[in-house]
Amino acid sequence: MNLKQFKITRIAIAFFIGATVAISTVTDNIILAFSAVLIGMIFMFMVRKRTKAVLSDERTEKIAGTAARVTYSILTTFIAFLGLFLIMSGQSSGEAFTESVGTILSFTALLSVAIYALSYKYFSKYYGDDQ
């Protein structure tokens, strides 16, 4: 399979997933939605395996790394501040639910930082850090 065929197949798979999820939303069928996403992922994996063309290289990996870092920074900061805001507003208004959501978001932000720190440590060692 060449690059052009791969791109066409990828669009077809995305269209299939989108259409099936839309149908499952209308018919209120969650199993159909999950099945569509799972089947789409399996198909995508198989298509990538069969494609002979180079789909990723050092430049795409660098781009992905930079994009991931930016996403992490923005999302974690946003979740942390939103969590803090909800905790404070929940405490001042006495709404336990709002405070709980804020606490969950704060712990999510902490989890995100922890995963980043652990993966950073792991890849740092992988790429030759001696400490």
Partner: peptide
Amino acid sequence: AEKIGVTRQTIFAIEKNKYSPTLE
């Protein structure tokens, strides 16, 4: 790109001095 195992976009980016390749 095919000969050295990268994407065409990488060759384009190197030629335009937008990307510095690795030593490899």
